[in-house]
Amino acid sequence: MKRIISIITQDLSTALRDNILVYMLIAPLLLSFGASMLIPSVEDTSIRFAVENSLQKELVMDLREYGEVEEYDSIDEVRNRVEKNDAIVGVVEGEGKLTLLFEGNEPQEVIDTYKAVLSNIMSNKSNVDVQHKSLDQRGSILKEFITIAMIMTTLMISGVISGFNIVAERESKAINAIAVSPLTTRGYIMARGILSNIIAIILAIGSSIILVSFNIDYSNLLIILILSSFLTTLLGLIVGAFAQNQLTAIAVIKLLTPLYVAIPMLSFLIPDRLSFLLYWLPNYWQFQALSNIYFSFPQEVTFLNASILTFITSGIYLLLFSKYLGKKLNLR
C-alpha cells in the first residue's frame, strides 16, 4: 500500500509541477461551460428570411412570428445575402407576385417548410385550431446527448493521461526500477487507477452540473462513475501498454477515441436489430447507463442492469489486460 501511495503522490506532484492537473481540470470544465452557452442557441435556432424593405410591413411582421427576418434595400442585396454560406431564404416581390428565393442547394424538407410558412400566412386560415401538449419540461435531446459525450470525454481524458505516465516511465526506463520493486501488477494498476478515477469523478460531476445543473439524480451518476472505474483505468493501461513513446501514444488514442466515445454514440443511429453488435463494449453499457440518467424517456436496458454490465464487462477486460500488462512491463 505504501508503494501504491508513493506512485500516486509522485503522479500528483508531477501533475501539479507541470500544470497538467490545472489543464486537466480547466479544459473540460471550460468546454462544458462553452457547451452550456451554445446549446440554448442551437435549440432556439429558427428559420431565417432575407426580405426587401419594400415588402408589406404586415407580411414582415407575420414572417417574424416564424423566424428571424433580415431586411435589405433591394432584390440584388437579398440575392447576395441568400448566396452567402449560411442558410437563409429570400422573400421578394416581383411583378406583383411574392417569390420565395432559394439558393438551389436546400434539401426538399427545407423548401417544404418555407412553402408551408408562406402558404399559411397567405391563406389567413384561422379555422385550424392547434394546441400543444408537452410531456416534460426538460431540455432537448441535444443537451442530454452533449452532456453524455462530455462526461465520456472527461473520463477518457483522465484515463489516458494516467496512461501517459506509464509511457513516460517506459521512455525514461523508470519502469525497470518499478519492475524490480516488490510492487505487484495489481498494485501498479491500482496506483495508476486511483488518481485518474478521482479526477474523472470530479470532472464528470463538474461537467454535469455546468451542463444540466441539479436536474438529474447525482447519486446514480456517482454509482455509474464508480462502476466505470475499471473502464477508466483500462483506457490508461491500453495507452501505456501499446505506446512506447508519445507518438505511438497519440496513435493508440486515435484508435481508442472512436471506439470509446463515437461508437456508443452511433448506437443512436444504427437500427435496433444491429445493436447486439455493440454488446461486447463496456462503454456501450456505460452509455446506456448514462442515457438512463440523462434522457427522460425509458431506455431498453435499465440503469441498474446497464451499470452492472459496465462493471462486469470492463472487469473482465481489465483482468485479461492486467495479465498482458504484467508481462509487457515485466511486473510481478
Binding site: 417548410t113 402558404s119 385550424v128 400543444h132 426538460r138
Partner: peptide
Amino acid sequence: RFTVVHHGKINPQQKKLIDASLKG
C-alpha cells in the same frame, strides 16, 4: 382541431412552424 404531443420546451417560432405544417 389538433393537439400536438411532444417532449420538452418548444419556442413560439417552432410552434408556429408545426402549426403551419398542419395547416398545410
